[in-house]
Amino acid sequence: MTMMLAKLFGARTFLDPEVEQWHLDVWATLIERFNEGRSFADTPVALPTRDFFPPTEATGHAKAEHVFDCVKAIMRMPDWPCVLEPQPRRTTGQQVAQFVHIAGDEAPNGTFRVEPDGVVVITYARDLLDDPMALVATLAHELSHYLLASEADLVEDETHELMTDLTVAFAGLGVFGANSAFSFEQHGDAFSQGWRSRSSGYLSPRSWAFALAVFGELRGDDGGMANYLKPEIEGLRRQAVKYLRKKPELLGHLRPVEAGSQARS
Rank of each mutant, 00 (worst) to 15 (best):
118 G>N: 09
246 K>A: 06
28 A>R: 14
10 G>M: 13
243 Y>E: 01
179 N>V: 03
214 V>P: 04
237 R>Q: 07
235 G>N: 04
205 P>H: 08
17 P>T: 06
87 Q>T: 03
36 E>H: 14
111 T>W: 06
239 Q>W: 00
97 A>Y: 05
258 E>W: 12
222 D>T: 07
63 K>C: 09
2 T>R: 15
192 S>I: 09
94 Q>H: 12
17 P>G: 07
131 D>E: 15
203 L>S: 07
124 Y>N: 05
229 L>Y: 13
197 S>E: 13
34 F>L: 13
172 G>A: 03
91 T>L: 06
149 A>H: 14
26 V>D: 00
75 M>D: 07
68 F>N: 09
192 S>T: 11
6 A>I: 13
238 R>F: 00
32 E>L: 14
237 R>K: 13
7 K>N: 11
85 E>D: 11
205 P>L: 06
237 R>L: 00
177 G>R: 11
181 A>W: 12
32 E>S: 15
162 L>I: 02
134 A>P: 02
158 E>N: 05
156 E>K: 04
4 M>Y: 10
192 S>F: 11
55 P>G: 00
55 P>D: 02
248 P>F: 06
69 D>K: 13
138 T>A: 02
146 Y>E: 03
201 G>K: 03
49 T>I: 03
204 S>T: 12
110 G>F: 12
193 Q>R: 14
100 V>C: 06
209 A>Q: 08
196 R>Q: 10
128 L>P: 07
95 Q>C: 04
65 E>L: 07
242 K>P: 02
178 A>Q: 11
102 I>Q: 14
80 W>I: 08
130 D>R: 15
5 L>D: 15
215 F>Q: 12
102 I>T: 14
241 V>T: 04
142 E>I: 05
76 R>W: 15
117 D>R: 03
211 A>I: 02
142 E>S: 04
55 P>S: 00
141 H>D: 01
195 W>P: 02
258 E>G: 13
234 E>G: 00
145 H>C: 03
130 D>F: 14
240 A>W: 01
180 S>K: 04
255 R>T: 08
23 H>A: 11
90 R>G: 00
87 Q>I: 01
188 G>F: 12
218 L>G: 02
87 Q>C: 01
201 G>D: 04
189 D>E: 07
213 A>M: 08
187 H>T: 02
106 E>K: 13
244 L>Y: 08
199 S>I: 10
191 F>M: 13
171 A>C: 13
235 G>C: 00
35 N>P: 06
